[in-house]
């Protein structure tokens, strides 16, 4: 495909509200191919969750969408432009990402952590502008972390810590957010708390979110779209009710299960029967 053809297709993508697209993407580490010829569209203002068994390539896909991994074949397009050709700093003003179990240096305060989110907007001589300050103050308030601003991150509980990191991503001010298993290591109430925060990010401040989630019921409840993966391919993608079906659970997870309506939200609820093993 020539560059002009890509540009033409690019503006069409933007017009269709497709912020992020994976086009025939293959990904791997060394010789090992993890994702093979995958296509995916992420639409403006939606919450998309990628689900699938361990080792199916979910996190690898998310890394490629966030430009942490260069595809061995195919391209990732951000707003119609090839993400690998864009300046790193420009990408960081459009797309923010939160790795799985991120680590912060010992003793770093919540306020300093969240302020780091402003990095793409800063330079060595401009490290704390009025814009930075108001964005960070807003992000702290919005995630209910303002009272903890002077506490070291390593002294927080798991749920508070994840809120601090999300606050950092929020302060970065990007339209798009990629979250790799934001609920790992959290107990159920904190998982729900974090996912409610993610939904508010989408509904109240218009963030487009792509995340990797393990819990199918929570994924179904808090996502507009689900992408089910197995062996590096997309098996099904669509609204939760269309994706979470008994045949699909058998195909993707090798799980025998009943799917009933969630009594609270009406979204699909998976009740496992067994693996059939």
């Amino acid at each position: 495909m020539t560059q002009t053809a890509t540009d033409g297709a690019g503006s069409a993508l933007v017009a269709a509200g497709i912020r992020l697209r994976a086009e025939d993407v293959s990904l791997g580490y060394g010789d090992r191919l993890v994702v093979d010829g995958l296509d995916l569209d992420v639409t403006q203002n939606t919450v998309t969750s990628v689900i699938g068994p361990n080792g199916c390539g979910k996190s690898t896909l998310l890394r490629a969408l966030g430009r942490l991994l260069v595809p061995s074949r195919g391209h990732v397009l951000l707003d119609g432009k090839r993400i690998d050709k864009m300046p790193t700093k420009e990408v960081a003003t459009i797309l923010g990402l939160l790795p799985q179990a991120p680590s912060a240096p010992e003793g770093l305060t919540v306020g300093d952590l969240v302020s780091r989110g402003r990095h793409p907007h800063q330079a060595w001589y401009r490290q704390w502008s009025a814009d930075d300050e108001s964005a960070v103050a807003e992000a702290l308030t919005w995630t209910n972390m303002a009272d903890l601003a002077e506490r070291p991150v390593d002294e927080l509980s798991g749920g508070q810590r994840q809120r601090a990191w999300i606050s950092m991503a929020l302060a970065q001010g990007t339209d798009l957010l990629l979250l790799d298993e934001p609920t790992t290591y959290l107990d159920l109430s904190h998982q729900v708390e974090v996912l409610e925060l993610v939904r508010r990010l989408n509904r109240e401040v218009g963030r487009t979110v792509v995340m990797v989630l393990h819990d199918l019921n929570l994924a179904a409840r808090y996502s507009d779209r689900l992408v089910a993966m197995r062996d590096g391919r997309v098996v099904a993608a669509g609204e939760p009710a269309d994706v979470i079906t008994e045949p699909l659970l058998a195909e993707v997870f090798g799980l025998r299960a009943k799917v009933i309506p969630d009594p609270v939200a009406g979204t699909p609820l998976v009740v496992p029967v067994g693996t059939g093993a």
Partner: peptide
């Protein structure tokens, strides 16, 4: 460079996500 050094204190993925 100290400004960038601050961003490098997190993991590499986080630092790249910040545009470093």
């Amino acid at each position: 460079l100290a400004h960038v050094l601050g961003g490098l204190q997190f993991g590499d993925d986080t630092a790249r996500g910040l545009g470093i």
